[in-house]
């Protein structure tokens, strides 16, 4: 077998890899969208007045957060069919990623809500605003900027975890690389290209998130002063 990086081979498989990259981006986007919504439900469970629901919610979040995404994927993919629920690998993957990162996002939301000063609530109470109105017009507009960096971080995080989907047969970038590598008995180029594509996409994204974070910190500092 020829040693070293073969540029002609890399060039040959480039179109295939780029198509698969599109799938990875779609998977990350859909998974993120689900996670954003799931996070809201966990947040709701956390903030309801019922102590029992709070407790159950916390245990579920802790369980999902402290077990590996990989086994959760297997669990959803292999166990649901036993109960007669047949879902495609794509749907299973999206559900699992949505649930897993939803727990993380609920923490981001919680932190953001707690970042809004208590006096804001008291002022709204004094002005006789309803709870819904207080959330909609006073609290959420202030909480949202605080949540943005955390939300951005998890978007990048989900993107970097999409290769796990290949283990249940979702045809994303890493899956394509493994397939191409197996077909040609060469793993050097496909896997290296996957790494480079990830770098190209996630490093600028992470830098952008860090910039947002700095801006939010500055803005918050100004509020405090």
């Amino acid at each position: 077998m020829e040693m070293g990086f073969r540029w002609d081979f890399a060039y040959e498989i480039l179109p295939q890899m780029l198509w698969a990259t599109l799938n990875t981006i779609i998977a990350a986007g859909v998974g993120y969208a689900i996670a954003l919504v799931v996070g809201l439900f966990f947040l709701l469970g956390q903030r309801t007045p019922s102590k029992i629901i709070n407790g159950i919610n916390r245990e579920i979040v802790e369980f999902i957060r402290s077990t590996p995404l990989l086994i959760q994927l297997f669990f959803v993919y292999f166990v649901l069919p036993q109960f007669g629920i047949k879902l495609s690998a794509w749907v299973c993957g999206m559900i699992t990623i949505g649930l897993h990162f939803g727990t993380y996002l609920s923490e981001v939301y919680r932190g953001a809500l707690e970042g809004v000063s208590k006096t804001q609530w008291e002022a709204c109470r004094a002005l006789n605003f309803s709870t819904v109105y207080t959330y909609r017009r006073i609290v959420l507009p202030q909480a949202f900027p605080i949540a943005i960096p955390g939300m951005g971080n998890y978007l990048v995080g989900i993107f970097k975890d999409t290769p796990l989907l290949s283990t249940i047969g979702v045809a994303e970038l890493f899956h394509a690389a493994t397939a191409v590598g197996g077909y040609n008995y060469r793993y050097l180029e496909p896997y290296t290209m996957v790494g480079i594509i990830f770098l190209i996409l996630s490093v600028p994204a992470a830098m952008w998130v860090r910039k947002l974070e700095r801006r939010v910190n500055v803005a918050q500092g100004k509020i405090k002063q």
């Binding site: 999409t162 290769p163 890493f174 493994t178 790494g195 990830f198 996630s202 490093v203």
Partner: peptide, 12 residues
């Protein structure tokens, strides 16, 4: 190492 996926690094 923060920019690429752990699974990719592992396979690499």
């Amino acid at each position: 190492f923060r920019g690429t996926s752990l699974l990719v690094q592992l396979f690499w």
